[in-house]
Design a binder for these strands. Sequence first.
DNA 1: GCCGTTTTCGGCCCGACTGTTTTCAGTCG
Length: 573
Amino acid sequence: MPVHNAEIAETLNELADLLEIEGENPYKIRAYRNAARSIENYTENIASLIQAGRTLPHLPGVGESIGNKIDEIVKTGHLEKLAHLEQKLSGHLAELVAIPGLGPKRVKILHEKLGINNLEDLSRALESKAIREIPGFGEKTEAHIQHELERRQQSRPRLKLAFAEQIATSLLDYIHTIEGIKNAIIAGSFRRRLETVGDLDILITCKTGSNAMKEVILYEDVEETVSQGETRSTVRLRSGLQVDIRVVPDASYGAALLYFTGSKSHNIVIRTMAVQKGLKINEYGVFKDDTQVAGKTEESVYAQVDLPYIEPELRENRGEIEAAQKNQLPKLIQIADIVGDLHVHTKASDGSYTLEEMAMAAQRRGYQYIAITEHTQQTRIAHGLDEKRLTERLKRIDRLNEKQSGFLILKSAEVDILEDGTLDLPNRILKELDLTVCSVHSNFNLSLKKQTERIVRAMDNPYFNILGHPTGRLIGEREPYAVDLKQIMDAASERGCYLELNAQPDRLDLRDIDCKAAKDFGIKVAISSDAHKISDFNNMRYGVDQARRGWLEASDALNTRPWETLQRVLQRI
DNA sequence: GCCGTTTTCGGCCCGACTGTTTTCAGTCG
């Protein structure tokens, strides 16, 4: 099993943590972190490339030295430099740096003065009240560390975007009732529509003399005020979600929005470009010799560094700035481009509504078609359909279609891919369908090789059209099964098969970078709600968000096409 | 350690808040 990119990145980040404690050159440390990020963003498995004897692709921020370290991690499974540092510092100091309020400097002091090597030592030192005696520390710092350590034990994972959105919407509604508020918007990863959100960044402009900041932190859901200032405060909500609130003048709104939307690495590049032009960008605007020359809108800030507006979903420093320079930014897909849904369940398998009810709801949304994709017999727990039951359903769909015009119910099924790569229903019934969505629902634990071969073999079936939820992950709950998506994409491209972007908020399967990889492969993506009830049709929005993060345009998706066109696209090669 | 319209050395984004001091370092985003 080759090393995951995430593991390589983690090793480099750990190295950066320890070097920081060592007091190493901060730019060197940043270099390691930049490289780690670059590796996380890379779609192909780097270890597989190296083991196949191929040269490492050019990754931004990875030069000769870090390149050699990656090689070492892949080939030996560990990094000598890291092991050496761990031994030298004799402890798990990286886990200490992870505690909010403890940075490398303080960890180093705790290590040297009190011999604190890990979380356990820290806990004991807190009990004996020894920390407050160290110069530079004090009672409050000690209490803060104690507090964060306790919080850590009940640590909350990042929230899924859809859940964070519920919390965010209520908070924003409250803020809008406050006297003197002009603008209030949630920036940060929420605005970039990242699949999970660690905290909320709320940006506010208000009339002069307004008490907005004081009022915001009176919100009934606030459990704790972490810090409070004139222009910036941090609170924690009952849900555990941290909220950063910033107030800026109107003239700075665009600059502040750009800055607080991030991502951090996108901002760093933009600021560096400004420095090269003799300008300074901060959250208050763009400045030339202390005179503000832009900043009221995001467009005005980008214009100062000769860039067009870049959509928030693209701001990850994954090539969007280079694309913007060449005027080659994608025209991102929008929810209004979607004309149908290719993955819908009803009561017949594990859905909650009848065929008629789902069809009517889809029509009300303005869709031209939906594909009814019941589970098949293997998925017994979801009352999967056998050949006989499916045949009956198809007749019912025919009858419904005859009665209506301007809307089409497509005959389909979510067909199980069996362990040996065969499909769960015979071809004599599959050929009656308008299209198939084929998914893995069992044997998640196969090896990378076997799982990949299983899916590729399934694609050999001429009635295979779309691979449903391609990695099987459940965000924060279940890891993706081991599968080589590049090989899958290769095979799909050769055979005329397609991939689904499952829009369920806890799946969002494909990931953003895999969407981009599919696009680069020329493979179109079905953005599908996987609706089991009427309200699930709303999931489509999260799918489109994810697609936008993956650089997809309307033409890169299947279900932006009328059925007549889509039918031709689905024709196997 | 990386990188190049400043080009193989000398730079590398910028500001707010807290706690402990008394003018600022550390941390965070």
